[in-house]
Structures are given as C-alpha cells and as structure tokens.
Design a protein around this nucleic acid. Structure first.
Lengths: 137, 137
DNA sequence: CTTGACCCCGTACTGTAGTCCGGGGTTTAG
DNA sequence: CTAAACCCCGGACTACAGTACGGGGTCAAG
C-alpha cells in the first residue's frame, strides 16, 4: 500500500465523519471514485480528508450537497470555458455575500441585545425580529 | 375579525411559505400559539410574517429549527436573568462570527478563481480546497 | 492458521423538515 | 341558500442526509 493513501476507515477518522458517510459521498459524486487494491479496498488520496472537511463546513453554512457539488466542480479544465466558470463563480460569490449580510444583521441584533443586558433593561418582545427586515433577495 | 390579524392562509402567502409549514412551526413552538375565533380559526398577529421570514433566512444560514428556536427565545424577561441571556447571546455571536469567517474564506478562494479565469490559465486541481484549511473551530 | 480488526456490498432504517390527504365545519360572494 | 374558498385536525407520505445491518472477504499479529 502506498504511504500516501488512506483506507476508508482511516480517512473517515481523520476527517471526523462516519465511514458510511464517506461511501455515501462517493456514491453522490462528492468524492471522486478512488482507486482500489486488487482485493477491492478503496485507497483514497490524502487530500480526500480536506475535501470531506470542506463538505462538512459548507453544510454548516447552509449549502445542500447538490450546491456543494457545484462548488467543488468549479475549476477551469478542458471541458469548461473560463468564461463559464467565471460566471458561475461570481454567482456563488453573490450567494455568499448575501449570507454574510444576513449573518451580520443577526449579529448586530444580538450585539444590541447584550448591550441591553448590560443596562439591565428588561425586553418584552423578541428583539431578534428587528433584524432581517425587508431585504429579501 | 380584527383588521390587524391574519388567517393562516394569508399569513402563509405573505411570508411565502406553505400553509402546512405554519402549522408545523406552531407545533414545534417556533410560532406562539395564536388566539382563535369562536369557530376555531387562528388569528395571527401581523408580525408573525416577520418571524416566519426570519426562520427561513436563518435556515438558509445553516441553523436548525432547534437553534432557531434558541435564537428566537433570546430575550430578557422575568424568568431569565440578564446575565444568562448575555452569555447565550455571546455564544451565538461567536457561532455567527465563525460562519462569517468560513464564508469569507470560501469567497476569497472563489475570487482567486475568477482572477485565474481572467488570466486564462487552466487550473487542473480543485481550487476550492485551498480554502478552509485547518481552522476547525 | 486462526482471530480480531478492517473492508466489501446492497438494503433497510433513522431523524429532520416539511407536505399532502381527506373528511369535516365556516365564511363569503352571488 | 348554495357554491367556492377557506379553515380545522390527525395521520400518512416525501425528500434529504445520513446511519445501521448483516453476510461475506481480507489482512496482520500471535
């Protein structure tokens, strides 16, 4: 076995995910199909762990597995033109910026809330609702 | 019927969600139980629509319904002390800041990708993986 | 050369977040 | 007064994202 390869179990442990999840992502096409040993064992390249961690993070940010697949496939190659990639990347950037704005808005409200706490003034209504008003993309 | 109240159908339409979703959120405790007409119809206060929109946005940002419930319940009242709320709000702020950092990281990578496109240099490997390395909270 | 840890595969099960159904009562416009 | 449009409820169904199961092969240590 190549020193630089990981069995599925090691990979799963390194990335902190369930072994079955690795198989599941492979079926979904989120991980490229790894080469196999003669007996059929998968041998993942080392950087599969990064990829797995990326997937998990992107999920925490509200991307579906389908969207994550789109993100992961953004690259320039022979079958995609630069212009095409550029357009798609810019669309993703816009999505991300919208998410960041929403998060900033919630954060600002929470900040205000902690200041109210400092002032010891009781707040009856739910102050979170002050955020995110009428800027629906 | 009060001018300021919404039937479930109107509310759902205004907020852009399915009517059943409104009932579902009510069951889950994400919407306070509204008063009813004598015949049993729900009459939601107008701001229930804001609340629904908040829920949807927070979901897009990767919060589960349980977490959203926690966000919505962050307020100072008689049964919660200011200090308690403050602590919880600060924890949420930290969560949010981590999400923002992750998003900025992905964005930066995508930006780099668009620059590569401009330069017309083909990129073989997946450049997205350059982001998000080893800063696991 | 066996035993335990690991891997294979397909299939079935689980949790979350809705969404639909259908049999019934209510409200409103004609 | 009736038909369309709306609402009630409980329960069944769906999609997505895993997670578990179980019967079998493989590999490394003793």
């Amino acid at each position: 076995m190549d020193m630089k390869s990981l069995t599925i179990g090691r990979l799963a442990k390194q990335a902190g995910v369930n072994l079955e999840t690795v198989r599941f992502y492979e079926r979904r096409g989120l991980l490229p199909k790894p080469p196999r040993t003669p007996s059929g064992y998968r041998l993942f390249p080392e950087d599969a762990a990064r990829r797995l961690r990326f997937i998990r993070r992107a999920q925490e940010l509200g991307f579906s597995l389908t969207e994550i697949g789109e993100l992961l496939s953004l690259r320039v190659s022979r079958r995609t033109t630069s212009a095409d990639i550029r357009t798609r990347a810019e669309a993703k950037i816009a999505d991300i910026e919208a998410k960041i704005r929403s998060l900033e808005s919630i954060k600002k409200t929470l900040r205000k809330l902690t200041r109210v706490c400092d002032g010891c003034a009781p707040v009856a209504e739910c102050p979170i609702l002050e955020s995110l008003d009428r800027e629906d993309a």
